[in-house]
Amino acid sequence: MTKLTAQYVRDLPFSLSGQTLITDDALPGFGIRVGAASKSYFAESRVKGRTRRVTIGRVDTLTLAEARRLAMKALSEMADGKDRNAELRRERAKLMTLGQAIDGWLGERRLRASTSATYRSTMSREFGDWSDMELRRITPKLFQARFAQIMDRTPAGAALAVRTFKSCWNWARADITDCDGLAILAECPADIIKAKKLMPKAKRKQTFVSDWATFFEALDGLEINSNRHHGAGEKFKVFVEILARTGMRMGEASNLKWADVDMASKTFTITADRAKNGEALTLPMSDQTYALLAGLHGRSGRDVYIWGATPYGDPRKTLRAFRLALGWPINFHDLRRSFATIATDLDLQQSKIIRLLNHASGGNVTLGYQVSKNPETLRKSVQDISDFIDHKKSA
């Protein structure tokens, strides 16, 4: 302990690393905290059996005499059981807005840029007018009214809005706690939707290709003439067939690079940054997939992506033309669903289907032990799926 004087405080050097606490022997509980770039006065005492330290102010904004006077007041309050830090936390909880919560939530989570943008877009679209509203003012009744408005427009969007809002709110509730780590914010107001059983039931799509002969007839006969995008039709045909024969997601296939393709070993890798579950996966090619990639390599082998200098774009016009020729509104994800359906019809092991689709095993302990990453164990499976497609194609 040292008797603090104005001269002593002024001459104190900054800390080289971390913080240094120096207490005043003239006023127990009063002291100065020295950091690498600043010095601040503090008051420290016990409140209800717990040590509490309160910042009084920076040295460059308070005189020593002013700091002592404020410290005496703070120490007196703590002696009466008043916890200033807890009050500050409660005040922060009262003042945090939904917009601040969104920024904090997305700022701390390690998400892909596209995922973060999707979350932010959902919050902006459904709750944008609440951005400056304090969280404490968003009541269950208010949330239910907004939920009803979204439901009238899009039930699926309402379910997404609830999930996204809950994630944001729960982050804020965990972030704003008292000195004992207990939540200050109330339970999420979106919980009223579950409590009242208002959440729309998710309807998983069941669409998949059942008539491969008609599918390839429409695909092979597709004619797209574009002066702006030379070869758009042929590239689309290859893209669609690769999706069908590999089960890849659209984003995985459209961003596939030649660096991720090994033509010698007939394998390709979905990198961790593109995989939905964040885990890289190397898969074997069927003979049919190899032929498709060999054709692409002859045209774009010197480019970064298998499609050329850039990833494969969004072929909306070509997709519309294909739907018209096919006679039903097919989506790219229907091809992944078709791949999985064929794998099931062929009675492939569940663990192999999960690996082929690069799905997370979740809480399945048994699947957690089946950690083989050897793509050769899947080669016969992908070949059987491609052969099945060809058999149905010519049937």
Rank of each mutant, 00 (worst) to 15 (best):
S45P: 00
L88C: 00
D129F: 05
Q370V: 09
M199K: 12
D347W: 00
P329M: 02
R53S: 02
S265T: 08
R245E: 08
D60Q: 03
A148R: 15
L95Q: 15
D11A: 07
P13E: 12
N255P: 00
W171E: 12
A101L: 02
P375D: 09
G104E: 11
K237S: 11
K380F: 00
I354V: 13
Y41L: 04
A272C: 01
L378Q: 10
D11I: 01
R249I: 12
K3Y: 10
T23F: 11
T115S: 14
E234W: 08
V54M: 01
A213W: 07
Q7D: 11
T20Y: 00
H297C: 00
Q383I: 07
D387W: 05
T2R: 12
T267H: 05
L281Y: 04
K257S: 09
R245Q: 10
G231I: 11
P329Y: 02
S40F: 02
L88T: 11
P315V: 03
M1P: 10
A253E: 09
E217P: 00
T2K: 05
P284T: 11
T164D: 13
G107Q: 13
T318W: 01
W130T: 13
S124T: 15
V9G: 01
L70Y: 00
I353K: 02
A395F: 10
G128F: 09
A74K: 09
I385Q: 06
T63G: 03
K201I: 14
E234N: 10
V47T: 05
G157E: 13
Y8R: 15
W307Q: 13
P284I: 08
L98A: 04
V47N: 05
D132N: 13
V162E: 08
I353H: 01
L335C: 04
T271A: 11
H297K: 15
P375S: 06
G18P: 06
L222Q: 09
L335G: 02
E217C: 05
I353A: 00
T63S: 14
